[in-house]
Every structure is written in structure tokens, then in C-alpha cells.
Amino acid sequence: MSLNNQLPMQWEFIISKLKSSVTVVDATSPEFPLMYVNEHFTRLTGYTHEESIGRNCRFLQGTDTNPETVSNIREALRKQQSTKVEILNYTKSGQKFWNELNIDPIFNESGDCLYFVGIQYDITERKFAEEQLKLATSLAEKTSRGQLEFIGKLNHELRTPLNGIMGMIELAGMGDITEEQKEYLELARQSGEALLHIVNNSLDMAKLGRGKMGVEHIEFQPLKLIQQIVKTHELAAMNKHIRIFCHADLSIPDVLWGDPLRLRQVLDNLLSNAIKFTEQGEVQLRVDVKQRSHEKTMLMFSVRDTGIGIPSHQISQLFDAFTQSDISHARRFGGSGLGLTICKELLELMNGSITVDSAEGKGTEFHVTVPFRSRQSIFNAG
């Protein structure tokens, strides 16, 4: 017997032993009946060769099979095109299994479509794992939202008595007291302010996590705002005997439209951190026009310090919630580790961004980029 005569039998034997399910459908019949199934198909589906041949593959479908997927298969067959789908099928015993189905048309030399060859892979375990992952993600999101709502409610309850305590400390300090009592009250005030800062940050995180935080688009004077922000931090810098100064690009527009409150919150946090982590030297706020047009002005704010710096391997975690570069820093300098996370979230709401450059022992520089609407774009919108 010649080699050519042996090939059809050899190929059929090889296909029959494949670990993948293989089917061949008669493309010349409108019912697209099965002409061939290999051994793996019968093991996968539970249907014998005799029970399968001559039937349309829809006998594998069931009540939970997606009609849209079935429609896509039919459309590919009608157009005589290749297709790849994931479809839920049923075995003879009624057990569900997920099938990755690859269908290819086979044409003769005249261009007539004679067969559709299907190769199926059992992807049930993968689909099960995907469903478990989706379920776990959904539960985690629900748990996270619940925790954030609890934090928000708890911190609202904390802020009221805390504000009362701060008020009483202020009143007590106005009376006739000794220097020692004044010192104690000042320590109490500082501790109260630190706690109030943590509460406010937690409230912001809760709002951000629940999508409740919004940004405004109002008119403000950027140079005036920057001047006010720096002035706010001058006393803290002076108490640590470090220099704080600002350099602003003179081409910054007199008026911009955006959210000055959220911008101030970001810059206040960065300057506060810079002062906190700097023992000697200086803190600088630099503001430059990065891009400007009739519609938009992009400003870059750079906050540079000569402080302790951040180890390179910890920079990637810097914007994660409740994270500080070193636990010893938390004990020494205080703070919840929420501030930078909030900055990043607020900047994303404003379509801005934040990056950091740092060298341990040499200082840190944060770069904040924020777009603002210009006067011309507001007039055009009006």
C-alpha cells in the first residue's frame, strides 16, 4: 500500500487519540450535523460516537447556556468564518462544563465550504477560579465600603467632642495661669490638633473610598493662595530653625478656575511633611507653568526638603494607605500615613498627578501637576 493511501487512516488515528476534543461538522447541510467526534469528545461529554454523529452540537447546550454566545456561533457558521468562544455546555448526565470552542471552516479548491472543524478545551477549572476571584473581589469591596462607612461615622462622632476639648483648652489658656500650666496646655493643644488631623484625614479617606468626595471649579488667585499657604507653615519651620521659602513663576495667570481648597489640602500636607522630616536645612515650594493655552493652564508644584529622605525600595509603597517609610519614623515624627494617600486620590479627582524623587539622608522632592481652566475658556463657555 502506498504512503498516500495510508495517510487518511493515520491522521484519523492521530486525531482520535488527541487529548483535546475534536469534532467535524458537515458544512453542506443546513443542520450542520456532526460527521466525526474523537475519543476525547466522548469522554468529555459522556455521549458515545453513535449518540453524537448526525446531530447538531446544540444538544450539548442547556438552560444556562448564554444565547448570545450561541448566536455568535451561528453567525460565524453562516458567514463561514473562524471563531473562538467560551460556552457553557452540559454532559449527558447533566453536569455543566465550560468549553473553549475554536471553529475553523475547511474549503475545497473551488472555494466551497465543506466542513467546520471544532477543537474544544475543557476550561471548567479556570472559569471556576475566575468566578471565585470575582466573588472574593466583590466581598472585599463590600467589606471595604462597610469599613469606610464605619470609619466615617465613628470619626464624625469623635470630631464633635474633640472640638469641644480644643475649645476648652483655648479658654483655659486665656485665664491667669502659671508658665508651667501654660506649657501643659500647649502640649494638650498640640496633641489635640494631631488627633483632629488624623480624624479629618480618616473622614477624607472614608469619603474618597465611598466616592463621596467632589471637587469644585471656582475662581481663585493662585499666587495669593500660594503666599497664604507658605505663610501658614512659617511658624512651624521657624520653631525647627529651618528655612522655608517659595519661588513662583511670574507668568502664572492672575486668575484660574479649579478647586483651591483641595489644592491647598495637598500642598499643606506636603509642606507639613517636609518640615516634619527635616531637622536642618530648608524647605522650598516652587511653582512653574508647565503648559499654557487659551483653554488650560497646567501648573507644576515642587516641594523640596533637605530631610531624612526615603529609601528607594520603599518609594513604591509611599502612597498606600496607613504606610510610612519606616515604623521608627512614625514613632519619632508621628502621623497616620494617610496624608499622601489622600493627596494622590485628590489629585486624581482633579486630573492631576504626583511623583517623588528622594535619596535617603539627602532629602525628598515631590512633584505635583494640576490642570486648571483659564480665564479664556471660562469666557468661551459662557
Rank of each mutant, 00 (worst) to 15 (best):
T297Q: 02
Q265R: 12
E279W: 04
S374D: 15
L267G: 07
I14M: 05
P105V: 08
G307Q: 02
S16T: 13
Q280L: 06
G281T: 05
K207G: 13
E50K: 08
V70I: 13
I103L: 15
L299M: 09
L7T: 08
V289F: 10
K207T: 10
N200S: 10
I275D: 00
H241D: 14
E365V: 14
N108K: 11
K153R: 11
S374E: 14
L346R: 11
T28I: 07
I378K: 13
S374F: 10
S71W: 05
V303W: 00
R331W: 02
L77Y: 08
H197R: 04
Q284E: 05
L7Y: 10
L261G: 09
Y115C: 00
I123F: 05
E179F: 04
M166E: 07
L347F: 08
E100K: 11
I198Y: 09
C57R: 01
D268F: 05
L101R: 01
K296S: 09
L256S: 11
L271H: 01
Q221W: 04
L139C: 02
L114I: 10
Q6M: 14
F301N: 02
Y121I: 07
S272C: 10
M298Q: 09
D112Q: 14
A359S: 13
L346S: 07
V287N: 04
G111S: 12
T306N: 02
S353P: 00
T23R: 01
E130I: 02
D357C: 06
E51Q: 02
L263G: 01
F277T: 07
M238S: 05
D326R: 07
Y90H: 05
K96F: 00
G363Q: 00
L162C: 05
A76C: 06
Q10Y: 15
K127L: 06
A359V: 15
A194S: 04
I53T: 07
H241S: 15
M35I: 08
R304C: 13
R210H: 13
Y121H: 14
T369A: 03
I198V: 15
L34H: 01
V215T: 15
H217Y: 01
M205G: 00
V283T: 00
D249W: 09
N108E: 11
T23V: 15
T28N: 07
M168A: 12
Q314E: 09
G146W: 13
M213S: 13
V215P: 05
N269D: 04
E216Y: 03
F59N: 00
L299D: 02
L196P: 00
G214H: 13
N5G: 10
D326T: 04
T63Y: 13
P311F: 03
Q314V: 07
Y184Q: 14
